[in-house]
Computed example of a mutant assay.
Amino acid sequence: MTSTAARTTHFHALHRPGPLVLPNAWDVASALVTARAGAKAVATTSAGVAWSLGAPDGDALDRDRAVDLVARIVRAVDVPVTADIESGFGVSAAEVAQTVRAIADAGASGVNIEDGLGGGLRDAAEQAERCAAAREAAPEIYLNARIDVYLRGVGEPESRLGDTLDRAARYLEAGASGIFVPGVVDLELAKTLADNIDAPLNVLVWPGAPAVDEFAKAGVARVSLGSGVAEAAYAVARRAAEEMLTLGTYSSVENGIPYGDLNALFQR
């Protein structure tokens, strides 16, 4: 599966019936490890990508650097790649369109675009315009519209479901392919969302969340770890540094991928 068109068609199909399981990557090495482990697609985590390139998460990363990394990952793996592009690396809808076009040109099959803004949410109508611009810029790409109502705890608890469903309908009408609702791990709520959103539903998981097969039974089409893998990897780096600097020992780096195995991933 070498052509971008073939990868993108396949990526769309992976959501139905699903679930598409995505342990997110943040650089070429983590993407290769993820693909070799059997992932059917590679998804980037915007936070992990930003951290690896020396920027905080939250639209601080330069667009060109993000696009370049996506292109490197696409060239390295044989499965579809979907890129988390935060809120689009642009103030205006036109700038979001430029980002999505560049990501598509880099060979990616999908993008995530979030509606979070500062401590709250972007106006739903404005976000719909951004989705529409993204769709026009890349007609074939899988556009995963992220809704941050639950993740950010916006509004009263009793209003969040209605707000999420309203936003989902607006974004789908504007051209979104799927809906991503991070912050929801309750199976009953996930099922309600899946039953009432006319598109594949993506949820974000973390330790203690229900297993993938439980989400599948609830109708969830896509399950991702977000920045969790990157956070765990950096935790190992911190433990190893602290242990070596304070105790003079090295047990924190036990059970790493052997040098030869990791190096071989790059020998294509």
Rank of each mutant, 00 (worst) to 15 (best):
S251L: 15
A211G: 12
S46W: 03
T249D: 14
G226D: 01
R135E: 02
A94W: 06
T44D: 03
A138Q: 03
L32T: 06
P207C: 11
Q127C: 04
A43N: 05
L161M: 14
A128Y: 11
G178P: 05
D84A: 03
A47D: 00
A13E: 13
G107V: 05
A168N: 10
L245N: 10
V33W: 12
R238L: 00
L247R: 14
I197T: 10
A71K: 14
P17Y: 09
A83P: 02
A241V: 03
A264R: 15
A25E: 07
P210Q: 11
A199V: 09
R152E: 00
E140D: 14
A209L: 07
V181P: 08
A209P: 09
A237R: 09
P200S: 12
I103F: 03
L247T: 14
S252M: 13
G178R: 12
A47H: 08
L121Q: 08
S177R: 09
A76E: 05
G118Y: 04
A37L: 15
L201H: 14
Y150M: 03
I103K: 01
R65K: 14
E243G: 08
A237D: 02
P17E: 10
I113W: 01
A216W: 04
T249P: 12
P200N: 14
A60T: 06
G153R: 04
T246P: 02
M244L: 15
T45R: 02
S227N: 13
H12N: 07
E243I: 10
L32S: 08
G219W: 08
S87E: 00
R36V: 12
P80R: 04
W206D: 06
G226E: 02
A230I: 05
V74A: 10
K191S: 14
Y171T: 04
S52W: 01
G118C: 04
A60H: 15
T44S: 07
A13H: 13
V205W: 10
C131S: 06
Y150K: 07
H15A: 03
A168Y: 10
V184K: 10
A216N: 07
D59M: 08
A134H: 00
R130G: 00
S46P: 00
R130T: 03
E95H: 03
R130N: 03
A138Y: 01
V77P: 08
S52R: 11
V79F: 10
A93V: 09
F89K: 01
G260L: 15
G48T: 12
A124T: 13
K191W: 05
A137M: 01
L247K: 15
E242Y: 02
T246W: 09
P258G: 11
I141E: 01
N144R: 04
V253I: 15
A216M: 06
T192D: 12
W51R: 12
A37W: 13
M1D: 12
V21A: 05
R152S: 03
A176S: 13
V96Y: 01
I147E: 09
R75E: 13
G208Y: 07
A194W: 10
P139W: 06
L14H: 06
G110P: 01
A71D: 07
L265S: 12
G107A: 02
N144H: 06
C131K: 00
P17N: 12
D115G: 06
M1G: 14
M244P: 00
G219N: 08
A50K: 05
